[in-house]
Design a protein around this nucleic acid. Structure first.
Lengths: 200, 200
DNA sequence: GGTCTTCTATGACCATAGTCTTATATGACC
DNA sequence: GGTCATATAAGACTATGGTCATAGAAGACC
């Protein structure tokens, strides 16, 4: 590795480390780019050579966090259990990981939404995972025949995010992971009454 | 009405009118508060006497739009048809209204999320409407007995918003109102296979 | 080890949202 | 209709994210 490359990595790490500390200490909004660069011992312009905006830092923080969770998720995916349970477990895992750092999650969800779609509209990775699980289990009859898998995956993903947001902005300490679990069951079983009930 | 009150209303209207025109002409981001105040013939400070932030303007625009839709919605609510249809129709109505002005909807959704929960966490009015509909129809057997109505309403609302966002940030011109319609059916019927199917 | 090219760092500079102090217009009261 | 209190207007000023032209460091080539 060339000296140039080494220095680049060093600078990037320094920015990442310093800003992480400052965000924890005083929050994202209350930390200025000036402070970060002063503390990191670099010029202000240098910061923007590494991150196009202050918000772009959040993406890195989340990537770091995601790596940890996805190890657990991959592990869960290997298990031989019904899809419904598997989806539940995966979402609960991710939920738990988010529960660990409410502010960072809030910032990121927000940032994610802001840039949602400016890039090449890859779906959220959770949606992909769920889509995949549903597809594989469709053959086993765990999912209704002839159903539109994409729509089903969307409903599950939507419910996950909605619960996440409900939790993120609530002050009460309701458990996000428990909430999502119950909702998944409802989605599988349906909320409509049977014809039998309706005729009563 | 005193002269003071009259002038206040006049100023507010002027700001509203001018900014609406400028946003349409050049987009929200590309319009500065300076421009708005220059064009409206008021001082910059005055603007902030009426709206705490530039974004606060969006709330007023959406209120205006909502008033139009809610007339239609109220009308729909009176009809004597199955809940499933009613919910579908209401969501499609709101969806259609959003389809009319994609940029404004996008800006507002974003702004709504930013301040989500800073206020007194009243649920989104759509959620309330759906919750209400489900509750009333629970007795008729149109909804499964003993189901958690709040969770059910959440799933429907979540799905609505997810479809909305999917549409908002997509470039393709898929119809948002059609998409949501199909998803509502799935939520009522459930996506899980029957025990019978599973045993095959 | 000198020279030339290219990549990186730098901070003065710019744009713009939002604040704050001061001036002015309005209305209440005599 | 004069005087005082108060609501509102105003715009100079501040804070901060982001740009850009220039200087300097690293590497390539002889």
């Amino acid at each position: 590795m060339s000296l140039r490359e080494k220095k680049k990595i060093e600078t990037r790490n320094k920015i990442f480390e310093v800003s992480g500390r400052l965000f924890k200490e005083k929050g994202f909004e209350n930390t200025t780019v000036d402070e970060i660069t002063k503390e990191a011992g670099i010029g202000k312009g240098t910061f923007f050579n590494y991150y196009p905006t202050k918000e772009a830092l959040l993406v890195d923080f989340v990537k770091q966090k995601e790596e940890l969770v996805y190890d657990l998720v991959r592990n869960e995916l290997k298990k031989n259990i019904p899809v419904r349970e598997k989806i539940k477990n995966v979402l609960v895992l991710v939920a738990r990981s988010n529960e660990k750092d409410k502010e960072m999650t809030r910032l990121y969800v927000f940032e994610y939404l802001r840039h949602y779609g400016y890039e090449e509209r890859k779906s959220h990775s959770l949606n992909l995972i769920i889509h995949d699980l549903l597809e594989k289990s469709a053959e086993k009859g765990e999912v209704k025949k002839g159903i539109d898998i994409k729509k089903a995956a969307d409903i599950l993903t939507a419910t996950y995010f909605h619960s996440l947001m409900e939790w993120l902005w609530s002050n009460t300490d309701i458990s996000f992971s428990e909430d999502i679990s119950g909702k998944i069951d409802m989605i599988f079983d349906g909320i409509g009454g049977s014809d039998l009930e309706r005729k009563k």
